[in-house]
């Protein structure tokens, strides 16, 4: 199954979850997602998601000067973002349970 297709549906949740643990800048979020197992996640997808969540008011942002490179715009969850994460998490868990049930009961039905 094409994981990039699955990823599109859950990228919001994944980004929110990553930022819930610790604030991060764009490329940092990309690397943490990849390190967390979503190796195929695209840079543009993450960057676009961050910008959209920010424009929707779910994220706060603040610039941190960097001694080594460009300024880094850090993102973090605000109240709206946390609420969004909570809703999305429930939705995902419900969906995942449904899928898991389908996948485990399916062979019994067939048998």
């Amino acid at each position: 199954m094409d994981t990039t297709q699955l990823l599109k549906g859950v990228l919001d949740l994944a980004v929110l979850a990553v930022l819930d643990g610790e604030d991060g800048y764009g490329y940092d979020v990309v690397r943490r997602l990849r390190a967390g197992g979503l190796e195929e996640v695209g840079d543009a997808s993450v960057y676009g998601t961050l910008r959209r969540l920010y424009a929707a008011g779910h994220l706060t942002s603040y610039v941190v000067p960097s001694a080594e490179g460009p300024h880094r715009k850090y993102y973090g969850l605000n109240v709206s973002g946390r609420a969004q994460l909570e809703i999305a998490t429930k939705t995902w868990q419900g969906f995942a349970d449904t899928m898991a049930a389908l996948l485990t009961t399916d062979p019994e039905v067939a048998a």
Binding site: Y27, Y47, G48, R51, R52, G69, H71, K73
Partner: peptide, 13 residues
């Protein structure tokens, strides 16, 4: 709004 800090982000990459 979308591409505000695109250059900074790409520089990180």
């Amino acid at each position: 709004e979308l591409l505000e800090d695109l250059e900074d982000h790409l520089a990180e990459v």
